[in-house]
Computed example of a mutant assay.
Amino acid sequence: MVIFDGINMSMLRKALSELTVRALAAHPIGTLMQPLRSRCVPVFMLHRIADPRHGVRGHPLALIERALSYLTHHGYTGISIHELAQALIDKRPLPPRAVAFTLDDGFQEQAELALPLFERYRIPVTLFMATDMLDKQSWSWDYQLEFIVTRTLLSHVNIRLAARSFAAALDDEGHKRQFIRTLRSHLKSQPIESTHQALDQLAFTLGVRVPASAPIGYQPMTWAQARALESDCIQFGPHTCRHLILTQMGEDDARREISQSWQRLQDELRHPVPIFCYPTGRPDLDFGAREKQMVRKAGMIAALSSEPGYIDIGRHRRNDIFALRRFSFTDNISHFIQYCSWIERAKELTFQRIKPRL
């Protein structure tokens, strides 16, 4: 074995990066610098959990456990999104090393693999559910897109969808994943009807039959599972009914997506949290002033976006409580530690100071 070949050099750099970050986050440097992060709370956003049994790609469960173990052994405090939102409303402080977690959508492997892990570590997590997934075994357009492209036997495609032409190699998993990302990005900006027409056309062209109900690998959890899992550590909130982008809908349809998903959680669960999670969650693209007003009128006390950044408990006016920010959970433990400690906050503050000069 050549120790300095490309693969091993990459592994070496990763190991050195983790050692460096751990050293900076640990005592005494971490203790000295922690005030930079003391009033800022990172909220981590997770989606699919890797489940080799059913071919599900996602966050490796072992990595999530490493992250939770790190928090437990280094003095961090897990808080729920509900607790965080209430602290913002009441303008009261939180523990100096507070961290929060969310899961989006409501898939089977999230219930079977991730939620019990959070319960075991006693670190709160809130799962935001697209309720039609549970009620009707439906599945959203973006996962149907993934299903179509990953299941095709074609090695290349040349197609025009939603007023744009696409040509892509589909001869390996990497090319397929790139095509999925490109198409998903384009279709997010299209009206719902155009998106569904594009999926029908894509499925026909690629020779893939799309099941009406979610197949294995895309199946949702059940209401019975949610009721069994609900606790002071595991909570549930609304994420629309059909996981559609609200800005691409008429006012009445968007309002129904918000209010009916909240009603379904109240019907099925003991203590759902009155906090909404916007599908896709990009400010001014996937939601705006209209949607925030609808969420407020539906009885929510807060809502979550997907815009990255800390929630600054010390400066309440900087937080839009109906567009709270979240970091994507990273599949790199060094990056996770960086966000939890003072390091990422120091980078953020440095950039804010030099940005006006650029």
Rank of each mutant, 00 (worst) to 15 (best):
I192V: 15
I354V: 13
A130W: 02
T195K: 05
S341E: 04
Q338G: 07
C340E: 09
A98Y: 00
Q34H: 14
E251W: 07
D90F: 00
M45H: 06
P93N: 08
I258D: 07
R22Q: 09
Q201V: 07
M1W: 12
F336L: 13
M221Y: 05
R97M: 05
P52I: 04
H186Q: 01
P191Y: 00
R209L: 09
A323C: 07
L161A: 05
I216Y: 10
P308G: 09
T150N: 15
S334I: 06
Y310W: 06
H239T: 05
A228K: 14
L202Y: 00
L244C: 06
C277R: 02
L117M: 10
A224Q: 15
Q108V: 09
L115G: 06
R160W: 00
L202D: 08
G174A: 11
F329P: 02
D252H: 05
L24K: 09
A169K: 15
Q248R: 15
R357L: 15
M9L: 14
R357C: 08
A198V: 04
A67F: 04
G207P: 03
F147Y: 15
S213V: 12
R184E: 12
L12N: 13
F327G: 08
I3Q: 14
I258G: 02
K14G: 10
S305P: 11
A302M: 13
R326L: 08
W223V: 09
M129C: 13
D286G: 05
F128A: 00
I343Q: 13
R160E: 15
C40G: 01
A203K: 14
T205I: 03
R181C: 02
T222F: 05
P283E: 10
S341F: 02
D132P: 03
E119F: 00
R227H: 01
T131A: 07
Y339S: 12
M1F: 12
W141F: 03
M249I: 00
V208P: 14
T20E: 12
I333P: 04
L24H: 02
I29Y: 01
D90I: 01
F107I: 06
R57K: 14
S189G: 14
L154M: 10
E257L: 02
I216V: 14
A15P: 10
R181H: 12
Y76P: 03
G281F: 03
P191Q: 06
L84S: 02
Q263G: 04
I354L: 12
A214F: 00
V43R: 04
E112H: 09
L206N: 04
A25W: 02
D172W: 01
D200F: 04
I180R: 05
I29D: 04
T195D: 03
M1S: 15
E291S: 06
P272W: 03
K347D: 10
H175Q: 13
M33G: 09
D132H: 07
P35R: 01
D252N: 11
S306Q: 08
D253K: 07
F287P: 09
G217I: 02
T240W: 01
V208A: 08
K347M: 06
A224G: 09
T240I: 00
A346P: 12
I7T: 11
A303G: 02
Q235S: 15
I313Q: 05
A130L: 10
I321W: 01
D200G: 12
S213W: 05
I192R: 15
S231L: 10
T205D: 13
W262C: 04
M1Y: 14
D90R: 14
K355W: 08
S231Q: 10
R345L: 11
A15H: 11
V273C: 01
D104I: 12
D267Q: 14
E268I: 05
F351A: 14
